[in-house]
């Protein structure tokens, strides 16, 4: 049994390095994707047909494709048309990874945020208009704060999905947790120990996030309409 932990212990620095990268990509992607989700959600509920259509097409494409295909497409296919790898050298790999993940998660977040906004009754908008608020102020001070509370559970769901999806970045040789595990195993052959350690680290990250969401729900008294 001592050997079991020993091999994990020996490779802990690498695993922690991988976990840090996983955390980094998760946080960046969650921020970028939330921004995309908000923008495209507002596009989709806009009365402007061009904005509306843009939002619809975005969701259709990036929710419709397998994430792995999106990663390959942006990393391998797109540079054939645009020399992105030269423009962004030497940061093309992380940028491609972040872009692919953000676009994909953003499409799901678009629908979550849109549903949240639409769940707030029309009366709230009318009341805000009736005291002279502009569309922007109505959204900013009346609709989004209420919608956000309702969005917390599905948002957290999607953020958990995002953390797990960063493991796919291993295919474009980003040394996040999953790839670190693979690399350690390729020299030590300690599949059981290392995958167990990797699994435990993922779960620890996700439990932390769940804890934060629980706090947020209590903080914003989610049961208050």
């Amino acid at each position: 049994m001592g050997g079991f932990f020993n091999i994990i212990w020996q490779n802990l620095p690498q695993l922690i390095y991988g976990a840090k990268l996983t955390l980094f990509y998760s946080v960046v992607v969650i921020i970028v994707a939330t921004f995309l989700g908000l923008i495209f959600a507002l596009f989709k509920i806009s009365h402007n047909p061009i904005f509306k259509k843009t939002g619809e097409v975005y969701v259709h494409i990036f929710r419709g494709l397998p994430l792995l295909v999106e990663i390959f497409y942006i990393y391998f296919a797109l540079p054939m048309i645009l020399p992105l790898h030269e423009w962004f050298h030497p940061y093309f790999t992380p940028i491609a990874g972040i872009l692919a993940l953000s676009l994909n998660e953003g499409a799901y977040l678009t629908e979550i945020i849109r549903a949240g906004i639409l769940s707030i009754g029309k009366g709230q908008t009318e009341a805000a208009y009736s005291i002279g608020m502009t569309k922007y102020k109505t959204m900013r001070y009346i609709i989004l704060p209420q919608a956000f509370k309702r969005m917390i559970p599905p948002l957290v769901n999607q953020f958990i999905q995002t953390i797990k999806d960063t493991s796919l970045l291993s295919v474009i040789s980003i040394s996040e947790l999953t790839r670190q595990g693979q690399m350690i195993i390729s020299t030590t052959f300690a599949s059981l120990q290392i995958w167990t350690a990797v699994a435990v680290i993922y779960l620890a990250m996700i439990f932390t996030l769940t804890g934060i969401s629980g706090y947020l729900e209590r903080r914003f008294k989610i049961d208050r309409r």
Partner: peptide, 10 residues
């Protein structure tokens, strides 16, 4: 003033 008040719930 609206029939259903429409106070800002938050």
């Amino acid at each position: 003033v609206f029939q259903h008040f429409n106070l800002f719930a938050h």
